[in-house]
Design a protein around this nucleic acid. Sequence first.
DNA 1: AAGTGGTCTAGACCACCGT
DNA 2: CGGTGGTCTAGACCACTTC
Lengths: 253, 253
Amino acid sequence: MTTHDGVLPAGLFMDLDRSGPMPLYFQVSTRIEQAITSGELPAGARLENEVALGERLGLSRPTIRRAIQELVDKGLLVRRRGIGTQVVHGPVSRKVELTSLFDDLKAGDQHPTTRVLAHAVIEADEHVAEDLGIKVGDPVTHIRRLRLADEVPVALLENYLPVAIADLSHEDFEDFGLYQLLRGRGVTMRVAKQRIGARASHGDEAQLLEIEENGAVLTMSRTAYDASGAAVEVGYHCYRPDLYSFSITLVEK
Amino acid sequence: MTTHDGVLPAGLFMDLDRSGPMPLYFQVSTRIEQAITSGELPAGARLENEVALGERLGLSRPTIRRAIQELVDKGLLVRRRGIGTQVVHGPVSRKVELTSLFDDLKAGDQHPTTRVLAHAVIEADEHVAEDLGIKVGDPVTHIRRLRLADEVPVALLENYLPVAIADLSHEDFEDFGLYQLLRGRGVTMRVAKQRIGARASHGDEAQLLEIEENGAVLTMSRTAYDASGAAVEVGYHCYRPDLYSFSITLVEK
DNA sequence: AAGTGGTCTAGACCACCGT
DNA sequence: CGGTGGTCTAGACCACTTC
């Protein structure tokens, strides 16, 4: 035991809400995460061991373990058997989060706007039909949008949705992100499969994104599934590479 | 209950190894995963509920839950309260896994080779020093490699490592991936932070990758940390976009 | 009301690490 | 050796969904 062990922020031991809907492990992990990002728990700091932490908080060890595991999965903590749990060294303060579902990302930094370039119900071609798990020729809503941040074009978004979920107006898309709209209609994404690549720009992409003709674009194609596992949306997006990139944190399992 | 419920492959109920080092939850999740990828459990199939599954396997419910959770995190299963656990619809058979640490990925499909273009100990510049958490001017090993698959150039890999971990020869790099080499020396990666983007190719990149001058490349910069949270490696890679892309599965938390 | 997953408890034993 | 995390058990109560 060194003098630096077990130095935990006072806020961690505030009363826990045992009646509300927020799980105890989540309350604990949130408090520890805040302590890390705020710098109260600096890089390399050791946490108290799980049993002691549980006693001090009046929680069982599995609950404490789950709270810590959440942060290990986020790449904020590292556990070693026989050693203990430490805050990861390195740039924990940087906002490198899991690749977000995009819409929220820009909202924090800059003023996002959207121009709807196309919006119509069409028949699914072979590629879209396969991704959505429907038949070729089935009706799908097609949307093509230009996403800007502070008036500067950042991304060109092309999406296809089964018609059942798509009674949406132009105005909706001007004001809200696609996921926000779907969530408001009771559609919740649970799993998404993405493929990130690059290529030269085609057709009108360069002009719309205000880059050099045939200039490089970052591409992302995605299929999203709802809670029942049914495909809800496919998207083929391309981004201005000087203004956008994907940040990912990997954790060895 | 429909007649399709609880149809589980016979192999799932083989004897479990309770003495070996492999955790029970892992044995269970592996068997279920195999049943899914092999098609024994088709898309949309419902699993037995957790309690019943535990009884049939002679395991407690938390153990079963953990096994299922592993597959939920992988995007293979979906759980809904009050409903049950189902295999995700959609292209589960495709090999879209979490972005692997690269070296293993190509090995399966094609014959990978590596050409070492540069290999020397140099002084860390500002950028590398910050990423590795060392001082500017500290010695680091610099390696620049061209990765080919079936004689076709796929990626240009530039890496920097603290000298302590880098008594490696050219021959090593010709034959093995960087991570494999480090693992063999007792260095294990636990967390990695990646940033994926795109840009036009610079300098000799187009020539080495055998693409058009100034053609688009997919880029990935990564910092990897070991179990103690110390930075072990930084890499600045670029890939031929027609031959390589990143696949990611996201799961809503 | 019945069935499901979501959370939580209070223990237990083991494997690994440092001294 | 003592301390740590890794795994596992056998229950319990709750929230949600469907009937």
